[in-house]
């Protein structure tokens, strides 16, 4: 054991910096660090050097999607402001807690703030090993390995019943993203008992509802590609809001189109639209939405677009 007492335990600080001390030794060093600015400086400088020594390597492409899928399930409030009666609620939506009636798009991505910051002693920013160990026991939901196909939110959905109701539901993903539900089956206009829809009655396909919206639109956005060629439309009518993927090619497995509102300082997800095989997709769009854009994303969706804008356009009142 090296120098403790009047001198600075510099050997131990160095060993601590590379994470080579055992738990007891680490605690002793942490106790010293808490009261010694010199050793704090040494530690920070060691860690800076180690950080520069660590190479940057391309992470696996699926890693970001996995991280997004692991974000706490409560991270994405329902996409539809309570006051918005324009957009038809997708089946299964009632399984979710009512969204805060903030009535503006930012709520889509303003996730609930992290829990009360119960600061533990010595924790103010300094990543002490003891704290890290404690955190192991308090990992956020979904902190464990998450399979892209079955994130936390997806498991919570009464998928069985919804499917039984012949609603071809593309549940979606951008698990932490607010608007994560894209419905390619049917819709129950007006928010009836969507959790237990009549299984016998044939429900009108989403296409019919979309068609009705197109026949008498409230608003329409034509999303054009780079060459101004129209590729998709977002239409709102009495039957709900729908994206029509007119001219977007189907994507390979594991990929999907994702709809964004780009009115804010950063894109706000409005949901995943599937891989393009289904051209009619019910979506939920806040009334105040101005400009929308479509990106290509992992099938689970993402919190922030990583791909380029595929198509974009402004919502115009019809």
């Amino acid at each position: 054991m090296s120098t403790f007492g009047t001198e600075h335990p510099l050997d131990d600080v160095a060993a601590y910096a590379v994470g080579a001390l055992d738990e007891v030794e680490a605690r002793i060093v942490e106790a010293h660090l808490a009261v010694c600015g010199f050793c704090q400086f040494e530690l920070a400088a060691h860690r800076d050097a180690l950080a520069r020594l660590t190479p940057d390597e391309p992470a696996p492409p699926a890693l970001w999607a996995r991280i997004v899928a692991s974000l706490p399930a409560d991270a994405g409030p329902a996409p539809r402001p309570a006051a918005d009666t324009r957009s038809a609620p997708p089946p299964g939506d009632t399984a979710r807690p009512a969204p805060p009636a903030a009535g503006r798009p930012p709520t889509l991505r303003r996730l609930p703030p992290p829990g009360p910051a119960e600061r533990r002693p010595g924790e103010d920013g300094e990543p002490l090993e003891r704290d890290r160990r404690e955190d192991d026991r308090t990992r956020p939901p979904g902190g464990g390995p998450a399979h892209l196909a079955g994130g936390p939110r997806q498991r919570q959905r009464p998928l069985g019943r919804v499917l039984q109701a012949a609603a071809a539901l593309v549940v979606v993903a951008g698990l932490a993203v607010g608007a994560t539900l894209a419905l390619t089956g049917d819709d129950d206009d007006g928010g009836g008992d969507v959790a237990q829809p009549p299984a016998t009655e044939p429900v009108p396909p989403v296409q019919q509802l979309a068609q009705a919206a197109l026949d008498d639109p409230t608003s329409l956005a034509v999303l054009a590609g780079e060459d101004q060629q129209p590729l998709a439309r977002l239409v709102t009518g009495d039957t709900g809001a729908f994206v029509v993927l007119d001219d977007l090619p189907p994507l390979p497995a594991g990929r999907a189109y994702q709809l964004w509102s780009v009115d804010e300082a950063a894109p706000v997800s409005l949901g995943v639209l599937g891989n393009g095989e289904r051209t009619w997709v019910a979506v939920t769009v806040p009334e105040s939405t101005g400009t929308v854009a479509i990106s290509e994303a992992p099938a689970t969706g993402e919190v922030a677009p990583t791909g380029p804008i595929v198509a974009s356009g402004a919502v115009q009142p019809a």
Partner: peptide, 11 residues
Amino acid sequence: RIRLCRKWPGV
């Protein structure tokens, strides 16, 4: 008056 968006805002 279509307003196309070619760059993600914020990002």
